[in-house]
Amino acid sequence: MSSVVTLVGNPREGSRTRTVAVAAAETLGRRIGYDDPPEVVDLAVLAPHLLAPAPSPQVEVALELVKGAGVLVVASPTYKATYTGLLKVFLDRLPGGALAGTVALPLLVMGDPRHALAVEIHLRPVLVELGALVPTPGLALAEAEIPALDDRLGPWADRVAPQVTAALGETLRQGAQA
């Protein structure tokens, strides 16, 4: 089974976005038969290194982990009706096609439900541009829903797990043919 990796684009360590993203990855991982906890790339920790003039071993390790993910949950709070600049800076370090063979699931945590489409309009396209297969609608979760997170994530994971499993199978078939 491929690894499940969570990429968290919140600039604050210990954020609610991280809590939601890890819970979503764990819940989905169990549904697709992956019992190990997801690996987490928390960009709040890497922020000082992302724009440094010298290469950063921590950033390079994070980039490799993301590129090697079988399933990648990409999470951000909603800033200015889109994902964070911190997440954009990290994703810009990936070359085109770097996420080929990766099943990506975009996730935004919103303060206002009016931003619900941002996950589809802004985050999904950049993941597709990087070559990821995004087989399901993104998850837009209002901050007000966080206290009942399990009630929201269980049905979400039940709904998307079949598509994620099918997409993983497709990426394995494509890799075998290459």
Rank of each mutant, 00 (worst) to 15 (best):
H115W: 06
L86Y: 11
H122I: 00
G29C: 11
P53Y: 01
Y83I: 05
M1G: 15
L28K: 09
G9A: 15
R152V: 14
P55M: 06
R12K: 12
A23F: 04
P55D: 08
L46W: 04
P37V: 08
S2P: 15
L108D: 00
P95M: 05
L141E: 04
A161R: 13
P135C: 03
P162L: 05
P135T: 13
A140M: 11
E120H: 02
R18V: 00
V8F: 03
V66M: 08
V103R: 09
L86K: 10
P57F: 02
L133Y: 00
L63C: 02
V71Y: 10
L50R: 10
P95F: 11
G68R: 12
E143F: 03
R18C: 00
L108R: 01
L63R: 14
G68M: 02
V74G: 02
M1R: 15
R31T: 07
R16G: 04
G169P: 06
A81W: 00
V61L: 08
A54W: 05
G33S: 07
R159I: 02
S3D: 15
L133S: 12
A161C: 11
V59G: 03
A161W: 12
L123T: 12
D42L: 09
Y79P: 01
N10V: 05
T102G: 11
A52L: 06
A52D: 10
T136Q: 06
L87V: 10
L127E: 08
R152E: 13
W156F: 14
H49G: 02
P53S: 10
Q163Y: 12
